[in-house]
C-alpha cells in the first residue's frame, strides 16, 4: 500500500511542478507537454492497476513492471533525441547570427570610417572578440 502512495504522490508532484514551471514561463509548452502526459499516465496506471496487467498480458509481457520499465526507457530515449535535435537547430541559428553579426560589424566599421568617426582600423579602446569571455 505504501508503494502505491509513493507512486500517486510522485506523479502528483511532477504534475504540479510542470504546471508551475509553465505558469512562470520557465518551460515552453512543447517540452512540458510530454512530462504532463507522463504524470497523467502514471496516475492512471496507479488508479487502475488492472489496466497495466491487462496490457502486459496482451503484449506478451509476463511481469507488468517490465512493461513499465520498457516504456520508460523508450520515453527517455525519445526525450534525449528530441533535445539533441533542439540543440542542433539552436546551434545552427546561433551560427547564422554570428555570421550576420560579423557582416554587420564590418558594415558599421565602413560607415563609421566614411563618416569620419574613426581614422583607420580598430579603435584602441574597443574590445575584440577574443578578449571577451568565450562561451
Amino acid at each position: 500500500m505504501s508503494g502505491y502512495l509513493v507512486a500517486v504522490l510522485g506523479a502528483c508532484l511532477i504534475l504540479a511542478f510542470m504546471i508551475e514551471l509553465l505558469r512562470r514561463r520557465r518551460l515552453r509548452e512543447k517540452y512540458a507537454a510530454l512530462w504532463i502526459v507522463v504524470s497523467v499516465v502514471v496516475l492512471a496506471a496507479v488508479a487502475l492497476p488492472n489496466v497495466l496487467t491487462w496490457l502486459a498480458d496482451e503484449l506478451g509481457v509476463t511481469v507488468p513492471l517490465n512493461l513499465v520499465f520498457f516504456g520508460s526507457l523508450l520515453l527517455l530515449l525519445a526525450v534525449a533525441i528530441q533535445l539533441s535535435a533542439e540543440v542542433t537547430s539552436l546551434e545552427r541559428e546561433v551560427q547564422t547570427l554570428a555570421e550576420e553579426a560579423a557582416l554587420l560589424r564590418h558594415r558599421v566599421e565602413v560607415l563609421e570610417t566614411a563618416a569620419g568617426m574613426r581614422t583607420s582600423g580598430r579603435d584602441a579602446d574597443e574590445v575584440g572578440p577574443s578578449e571577451r569571455s568565450a562561451s
Binding site: 554570428a98 557582416l103 564590418h106
Partner: peptide
Amino acid sequence: VLDLPFNVGVGG
C-alpha cells in the same frame, strides 16, 4: 576583415 564572435569552423 569579418570578425566572427566565436569559432564556427571553416564552413561557417
